[in-house]
Design a protein around this nucleic acid. Structure first.
Lengths: 214, 214
DNA sequence: TGTACATCAGTGAACGCGCGTTCACTGATGTAC
DNA sequence: TGTACATCAGTGAACGCGCGTTCACTGATGTAC
């Protein structure tokens, strides 16, 4: 970090603005580095190198790599929660294609965040994976509530609705994985989207018959 | 490793038997250590320490930790393939509860192996996660074939059958996760099993209505 | 307004540590005669 | 059968390296008067 006075026409940042910018650089660098490797394999020195500061300056922003990890989880789960809210806010004519569209759009826009969530969901530190699990439970819970509102599903017990919501979330998580890793064996992006839509439709069809074939 | 002549009534092992025993000790130690952390965070020295040999002796068995990792993947995916064969071999009256029972039994018996597969499926090295993905594709493929044999599903395209098989595999993977990590929020083992059965039933119900409500 | 002092993000040298890997070795096991 | 030699799993010292963390520091920014 060069300490220079405002040059040309720029207005100089305040100290706290500079600090915040460095903090964001650390978080962004970490997220980029996570495309290549695990969070737990990432060293403090790699992160600071990539962010353009000296290793010791790291401690001006985070007490440890774990602390940075928790901030990252917070940011990424916020992204996920925003997506959930976005999906709920726009009830389209066809809720299934609407939901999948929102999913695809958000995964495209925040690929690194979703990659982080998916990667660290299991492999990572327990605090990180617990935080991710909690947000996914929130997702399932919201979805359960949405399902409960459907008049056609009034015969469902809460437990059964939750079970179905979990299945939907599992399908969407698989879709996120497929969107993130362009694997020729898993087909093109269009294939992935089409598969996701059919899987959700299949689940909905199953729910229509659930306990109802009197 | 103490080099001692056969003592008491034991018959001394041959050199190759000793070597194989050490190799297995390395693999087993690694699998145990993986309950605590990632494979990529595991050091060669930790593994040899836990197996009771000196670090340099490691190279008598594997060229690198990566090579040991691939052996581990081979062993664990073999376990998974055996489970698949076991499930296919015993077609019970109710295929769903039969499959879930086989799954639960195998996860109980080979918990460390399944934990490894689940943990390294994404977080890990690309060679490891690719090998796991391939075995899971095999699983899906076998299941697709089983579904294709059902007369009731004759109207399904191969693509649709595969889509449904993937959904079933996703549900079973989620079940494996839940069985491995006893999370009070996810309910008791019985709850997990009951949920898995209902999810598979829901999918089957969906398939019954698929394209058929003429 | 200018001056004197406090704050604090970032610096750079230094540290001890566990790591992967090399190397020459040891001594029990295996083999040829 | 016994003897002489080869094999090779495991040893232990040593190496250079990147790591996290400490410390005293610098100098621009912020604040009080």
């Amino acid at each position: 970090m060069v300490h220079e006075r405002s040059h040309s026409s720029e207005v100089s940042e305040s100290r706290s603005e500079r600090k915040e910018r460095t903090r964001q650089a650390l978080l962004n660098s970490t997220l980029e580095l996570l495309a290549e490797k695990n969070f737990s394999n990432l060293s403090l020195r790699e992160v600071t190198r990539s962010a353009g500061i000296v290793p010791t300056a790291f401690y001006r922003h985070f007490g440890s790599m774990d602390e940075l990890g928790m901030s990252l989880v917070e940011d990424c789960t916020r992204t996920l929660r925003q997506m959930i809210r976005e999906a709920r806010r726009n009830p389209s004519a066809d809720p299934i294609t609407g939901t999948v569209d929102t999913l695809v759009k958000n995964v495209r826009e925040h690929a690194a965040s979703f990659r982080f969530l998916v990667r660290e969901r299991y492999g990572g530190a327990s605090s990180v994976s617990r935080a991710i699990a909690t947000t996914l439970e929130l997702f399932t819970h919201e979805l359960t509530i949405d399902l409960a509102r459907q008049p056609a599903l009034s015969s469902f017990s809460t437990d059964d609705l939750e079970m179905a919501a979990e299945l939907m979330v599992a399908a969407m998580l698989q879709t996120i994985q497929d969107l993130l890793k362009p694997d020729p064996r898993r087909g093109s992006e269009d294939d992935v989207i089409y598969r996701a839509v059919r899987q959700l439709r299949l689940i909905v069809l199953g729910m229509m018959s659930w306990k109802s074939p009197s």
